[in-house]
Amino acid sequence: MITSLGPAQFHLLLVGTLWTLALSTVGFLFGGLGGLAVALCRTCGLMALERFAAAFIEIFRGTPLLLQLFIVYYGIGLLNISMSPWIAVSIAFTFHASAVLGEIWRGSIESIPRGQTEAAKALGIHYCFRMRYIILPQALKISLPPTIGFLVQLIKGTSLAAIIGFTELSRTGTLLSNITYRPLLIYAIVGLIYFIICWPLSRLGRAMERRLSPVISQ
């Protein structure tokens, strides 16, 4: 039961890392879909929908991710549709990502000069076409750096799933430090693994930002 840090323990850390990656990927992909919907609602010009999307964004940006996890996780249970913890946690991260990405992409969509929309309208190009071929491609480019920034936040955020008992990387760390009794070492390793995952992404995001923004001459 009580062991030292050996290959078996590193294997556990690897499995935990895979869960962290899986959770981040699912949250990011579904959150991307949801975020697109939220961003479109937020900019569609219909008062009711815009308000609804704005409220959705505010609620998720104004409360701690930890509490969102608790509420979605336990709330789903109360709806009488029980599901595996893995799906429940994924849904919680999906909602969170939808709200944050929705807000990031709203900003990008609104940063496209209004004149382009008006010109497209004048040419009789309808909404779907206009979004798909004119606005979104440009907005996407602008939004890439903050989107990647959020991905890093999301990956780190999945560590909170540990608190509701989901065995991803952080929780594996806790479990291991409990059976090896070497917390400092274990947390250093866990932190290092997160760093190895997140750092390249952070750098990528910053490189993109630099390429996009006009150089400020000093």
Binding site: K156, S159, S170, Y187, A188, Y194, C198
Partner: peptide, 11 residues
């Protein structure tokens, strides 16, 4: 910036 807050505070 590239490690979770939970790990930082535990550390």
């Amino acid at each position: 910036r590239n490690t979770p807050f939970l790990v930082q505070i535990f550390f």
